[in-house]
């Protein structure tokens, strides 16, 4: 059973009928996201994101590896998305399904191929060693719109992550521990996010951030990857009924607004978290000093 249970006829008809009156099941407007809640874990690059009932955890990690032969100046960056039975009973661990392949591809294209993370800055020593950054995406609970949720979580994670400092001395690479030197933030060139739309009733009704039920009732989807500056870096009309060109133009503007909004929200949470960490860090320092004073006495 690797397929999501089908929607009943009554549910499908009702969702379509309600959209004709511009009503969504949870009372949102067509261009509204569900409440977004982002929190960071104790370590750098650990993000817990809730978008309505969709719940995602992203871990960013870094290790030193050898760069690829053909790109000696580039570091590595990979996104790993695995859908396990944890997220939905419809997914089986170890077996790829459509959503997984599709979401991985979309995330790759939006974040990796648009060079949101400057991989050249990950190079430590040409052709010898570089950083390999890895983003692991775990879906804890699934209620539609996995792509947008994962995209926001990864981008927040990349901005939050700090890698250990590394220097080259006499041709040798030295990686400093987090305690020895202040860890370094990653070099983010721009902040693209995906905004997924679903179309209904011959693309007369287009909604953003569909829940699972809405996704199942939809006739087609449209994914727009766009950054805060308004550069479209990804556009996909993967399957389903055709969408009008004007719809795409209009919705790109909506997507831009949404991305600006979400990026601002992420920025706010990030700053709050950094401020919290700075406070704790200072408290730690003063404690160490006190310890020393006691020892002297």
């Amino acid at each position: 059973m690797s397929k999501e249970a089908q929607l009943s006829i009554a549910e499908r008809d009702f969702i379509l009928e309600a959209l004709r009156e511009n009503v969504r099941l949870d009372g949102r407007q067509p261009d509204d996201y569900r409440p977004l809640n982002i929190s960071f874990g104790e370590e750098y690059g650990h993000v817990n994101l809730q978008l309505g009932k969709t719940n995602i955890i992203v871990r960013i990690s870094a290790e030193v590896t050898k760069p690829r032969e053909d790109r000696p100046f580039d570091g590595l960056f990979n996104i790993n998305l695995e859908l396990t039975a944890m997220g939905s009973p419809a997914w089986e661990s170890g077996r790829t399904n459509d959503i997984e392949a599709y979401a991985t591809n979309t995330l790759d294209r939006i974040i990796r191929h648009s060079n949101a993370l400057d991989t050249e800055s990950l190079c430590i020593l040409k052709g010898v060693s570089c950083w390999s950054i890895r983003a692991d995406v775990h879906v804890i609970d699934y209620d539609g719109n996995i792509t947008d949720a994962a995209c926001i979580a990864i981008m927040a994670g990349l901005q939050h992550f700090r890698r250990p400092d590394a220097v080259v001395r006499d041709g040798r690479v030295i990686v400093y521990g987090v305690e020895q030197r202040v860890p370094v933030a990653l070099n983010i060139t721009h902040k693209p996010l995906s905004v997924t739309f679903h179309t209904f009733n011959d693309s007369k009704h287009v909604i953003v951030d569909a829940t699972l039920k809405e996704e199942q009732a939809a006739e087609g989807d449209l994914v727009i990857g766009i950054n805060s500056a308004g550069d479209v870096c990804y556009l996909s009309k993967y399957a389903g009924a055709p969408a009008d060109a004007m719809v795409i133009v209009k919705k790109t503007n909506v997507a831009w607004e949404k991305v600006k909004e979400i990026n601002a929200a992420v920025e706010k949470v990030l700053q709050a978290d950094l401020a919290k960490r700075a406070k704790i860090g200072m408290a730690d320092e003063s404690r160490a000093e006190n310890d020393r004073l006691v020892q002297i006495e």
Binding site: S8, A10, E11, D13, F14, L25
Partner: peptide
């Protein structure tokens, strides 16, 4: 049978 309506 249930006809019409919506399931929550």
């Amino acid at each position: 049978p249930l006809t019409g309506g919506m399931v929550f």
